[in-house]
Nucleic acid binder design. Structure first.
Length: 480
RNA sequence: GGCGACGUAGCCAAGAGGUUAAGGCAGGGGUCUGCAAAACCCCGAUCGUCGGUUCAAGUCCGACCGUCGCCUCCA
């Protein structure tokens, strides 16, 4: 079955075919680096990271670009958020942007988000933006007023094709900012004149100023990916006006289509409400990591579809963490058995089961990256694997290697929720030997029916976070 | 006010016209165990409400109720 993706532009699922066979050029709107990343960033970048990972799994060579917005967008107060942050933290604006860029990547690393191939900074592309704006003026799509440049929405009839909005409605809307110098209230800024107190400013043909809110994505995506390129992703909240404006700028300036597939992911909610500082329900990733393992958060995110809104509650995260632990338990057991397994080829019946799991996984992922379905396939496989390990005769090395390899591929490479080595592997050799010694001693005590002492060993180890599990083939242990 | 999305078991969450409505968590009952843990087996929903289309509807259409998003910076 071929990969189908929901394209926001056509509002339906379409067969995915990249412009150049075997290659995918993809852009996702990145963060504005004026503050720590929050759970919403986590959802968005885990969602798109998983999409990139699956495309690579399918064999595509993916070029993934995600910008870093280090020029502040304007707030209602007229102040730009980078500058506001700089004042708050008493840093130079560029220092602030660099500081939060590093923290952003550190958070994403913990969520096992693969770094984009290119992370272009807006401030590094001001000359390209100026050239692009000049081209829009030359072609009659933009005009200059008092050192600012605006895009003339009425000159681009397709404005609104992504978000399903019509310009007349925008004009009628009471919330559109009315600026006298704009010819039309719906027009948007390409370049803004810098007031004297504005720190972040660049020279331009229209005087000192700074770029508008949408031009960086148009310029940087096409610079590195060409035009048109395959996939443009971002959060739904950016569909309008941000993505709509990107399209207008890109297509007006060149006459070429912009992005071929638009993917929008759903918002993250906290207990049924949008996460907002003003609501006091703002949770940074750093804060979340204090309570939940980053992998559990990633797993939680992937247990719902990327296009759905995701409501975060403590209970939901706790149960996701437990579910992931179940998956890990099976992987650990497989790897532990592998060490002592008899040599031999893989059992054809098991290979068939694995093949079925792989197929179910791919069918879900092929259907617009349905990660909940893919995870379900993994759990069905896990039930079979655990049953296999419960049998009195140990599976062969070949069988266990095949099981382990599939876990690594699907849960590890594609979903990114399975580290290459689980924490037990990190327990030093000496500690492992000592645990083995205690298990042996306890086995002898049990043989002698000295259960009180045997249980004491088990309880003391449990207190240290080492849980013993007695099975038909002896005792194993796991960190809890 | 305009545009859009969603409402599936106690909780989270897939499914989108047709065999027994995935999966996870929690719960109940078993198996295994000296006991426990882990694991395995069994048990639970008729799909917001009301109409309609169809041989057949969580799945399509309409109305209503509810929740949420966008329309202003937001991942």
């Amino acid at each position: 079955m071929a990969l189908m993706v929901y394209n926001s532009l056509s509002r339906q699922k379409e067969a995915f075919e990249p412009l150049h066979p075997g290659r995918v050029h993809m852009y996702v709107c990145g963060p504005t680096v004026y503050n720590d990343a929050h759970l919403g960033h986590g959802k968005t970048y885990v969602n798109f990271d998983t999409i990139v990972r699956y495309l690579r799994y399918l064999g595509y060579q993916v070029l993934y670009v995600q910008n870093i917005t280090d020029v502040g967008h304007m707030l209602d107060t007229g102040e730009d958020r980078i500058i506001q942050g700089a004042r708050r933290e008493r840093m130079h604006p560029m220092q602030l942007a660099e500081y939060y860029t590093r923290r952003y990547f550190a958070d994403m690393d913990r969520l096992n988000v693969t770094r984009p191939d290119i992370s272009p900074r807006a401030t590094g592309h001001i000359p390209e933006m100026i050239v692009w704006i000049q081209r829009l003026i030359e072609r009659g799509y933009a005009y200059e007023v008092n050192g600012s440049v605006y895009f003339s929405v009425s000159r681009f009839p397709e404005y609104g094709k992504l978000s399903g909005r019509r310009v007349e409605e925008l004009r009628a809307g009471a919330r559109v900012e009315v600026l006298d110098e704009k010819r039309d209230p719906a027009d948007f800024a390409l370049w803004k004149r810098a007031e004297p107190e504005h720190i972040m400013r660049w020279p331009s043909p229209w005087g000192e100023g700074f770029p508008g809110w949408h031009i960086e994505c148009t310029v940087m995506s096409t610079k590195y990916l060409g035009q048109p390129f395959d996939i443009h992703g971002g959060g739904v909240e950016n569909k309008f006006p941000h993505h709509e404006c990107e399209i207008a700028q890109a297509e007006a300036a060149t006459g070429l289509p912009f992005a071929r597939y638009w993917l929008h992911n759903g918002m993250l909610m906290i207990r049924g409400e949008e996460m907002h500082k003003s609501l006091g329900n703002f949770i940074t990733l750093q804060q979340a990591f204090e309570r939940w393992e980053p992998m559990a958060i990633r797993f939680f995110i992937l247990q719902s579809h990327y296009r759905s809104p995701l409501d975060v509650t403590d209970e939901a995260l706790d149960s996701a963490a437990k579910g992931l632990e179940r998956l890990y338990g099976a992987v650990r057991a497989v790897r532990r058995h592998l060490a002592a397994a008899p040599e031999g080829e893989a059992d054809p019946a098991v290979l068939e089961m694995l093949e079925g799991a792989r197929r179910a996984f791919e069918e879900s992922m092929d259907d617009d990256f349905n990660t909940p379905g893919a995870i379900a396939a993994l759990f069905e496989m896990t039930r079979e694997v655990n049953a296999l390990l419960n049998q009195s005769t140990s599976p062969t090395q070949g069988t266990l290697q095949a099981v382990d390899a599939l876990y690594r591929r699907l849960a590890g490479d594609v979903l990114g929720v399975l580290p290459a080595s689980l924490e037990e592997d990190a327990v030093a050799g000496m500690a492992q030997d000592l645990i083995a010694l205690l298990i042996e001693t306890r086995a002898a005590l049990r043989q002698a029916k000295q259960y009180a002492l045997a249980d004491q060993i088990r309880e003391r180890l449990a207190a240290l976070g080492i849980q013993l599990q007695d099975g038909p083939q002896g005792t194993t242990w796991a960190l809890r």
